[in-house]
């Protein structure tokens, strides 16, 4: 076996491992930790093609994948392996992003104390505020986790947020609202809750750019005109996929 053959075999192995990793993410249900599930078929198809490319590579004696290329992709595969193996070992707020499972569809509205609240995710609340001339008084039910990190801690405030992913984790943004009311002070940072709340104008002295670090997010978007006054809050399990992958502009919202 000459050096060229070994190089082709090493290149083939890298391709097979890459293809296998892509298919493995789908098979194990952990795909959503990296990408929006709407791309799952695309990734699956690419994984299959990469497998075939890897199987074909040793047979093309003219091919020369290059040792440096193989080495860098091998480093990538090690990182991918670390990432996939580490899902169960994160702590604190990062923990919130690495749990999975499936859940049943929820009713579009929930009633509490004689009032109806429309279920939507935090990104949809921000969209609602954007397209509504005056969002004051809108009643919404949102799921998310409390955060008091960064500037929020300094100001003694809290926000309810969730991370939204359009394509992949690289574009992840934490989106949410500052919360007000007596119940806002109780839940610890990182606690998942379902909040039934009323959108209210931002109280005097609350405005400002709050820098909040949420693991995995480029940036945290908090509405700068309104707060969510908590009418009722209850501890909740994180959704099966804690990220927001879908945004709707009318009921039933993606929630």
């Amino acid at each position: 076996m000459n050096a060229r053959t070994v190089e082709r075999l090493a290149g083939a192995l890298v391709l097979v491992l890459l293809g296998g990793f892509m298919l493995g993410l789908i098979a194990t249900g952990t795909y959503w930790n990296y990408l929006n599930p709407k791309f799952m078929r695309l990734t699956g198809a690419a994984g299959v093609v990469l497998l075939f490319c890897g199987l074909a590579l040793p047979f093309d004696r003219g091919a020369s994948p290059g040792w440096s290329n193989i080495a860098v992709l091998s480093v990538f595969l090690v990182l991918a392996g670390i990432s996939a193996a580490g899902f169960g070992e994160n702590t604190a707020e990062a923990d919130l992003f690495f749990s999975g499972g499936k859940e049943e569809a929820q009713p579009a509205r929930v009633e509490w104390n004689g009032q109806e609240y429309v279920r939507m995710n935090t990104a949809e609340v921000l969209l609602l505020i954007d397209r509504t001339p005056n969002a004051t008084g809108e009643r919404v039910a949102v799921r998310g986790f409390f955060t008091r990190s960064g500037d929020l801690a300094t100001a003694g405030r809290a926000a309810i947020v969730r991370t939204a992913v359009v394509c992949c984790l690289a574009d992840a943004l934490a989106m949410g609202m500052l919360v007000s009311g007596d119940a806002a002070s109780a839940p610890p940072s990182g606690a998942w809750s379902e909040i039934l709340g009323t959108i209210e104008p931002m109280p005097q002295g609350w405005a400002g750019n709050y820098t909040v670090r949420i693991p995995g997010s480029i940036f945290t978007v908090l509405d700068d005109r309104y707060v969510l006054h908590i009418d009722h809050a209850a501890a909740a399990d994180p959704p099966a996929m804690p990220y927001i992958f879908e945004f709707r502009e009318k009921e039933p919202y993606a929630y």
Binding site: T43, L169, G216
Partner: peptide
């Protein structure tokens, strides 16, 4: 530190996985 390494690995993987099908398609074409 481990959390940062894990997040770095996850982020790297996410960016690569997002682009890989398009790079593969481009390579095939």
């Amino acid at each position: 530190m481990f959390e940062d390494l894990n997040m770095f690995a996850t982020m790297t993987t996410a960016v690569f996985l997002e682009a890989a099908p398009f790079l593969l398609l481009g390579s095939l074409l």
